[in-house]
Amino acid sequence: MAKTTISPHQVKHVAQLANIPISKKEEQELTQAFTETLAVVNQLKSLKTKNVQPTHQVTGLENILRADKVDQEKMFTQEQALANASQTHQGYFVVPRIIEKQHA
């Protein structure tokens, strides 16, 4: 069975992609957990799947659309939408800065 080896470097990269801060210790632990989990997953490679179509949806429903109408029942008021926000400003969500300030 093909063994997938995962490096701490890969784990660190994935953490960045997933936007999850991890410590050096977690990086090691996660490397081990990844390798253990992928060993189980790799067993799937022993099955014959070459001519098998993937299943993404089990009930076979297709193109389920709603009417193009505003549903007041489903809409939040501005107050409701902001009710759980950690920081608001004059009816807006406050978000962290993601673009660096330009230094003159």
Binding site: V41, L44, K45, L47, T49, V52, Q53, P54, T55, H56
Partner: peptide
């Protein structure tokens, strides 16, 4: 691959 085995 997982979605294919799901079909199986």
């Amino acid at each position: 691959l997982a979605q294919k085995v799901r079909t199986l």
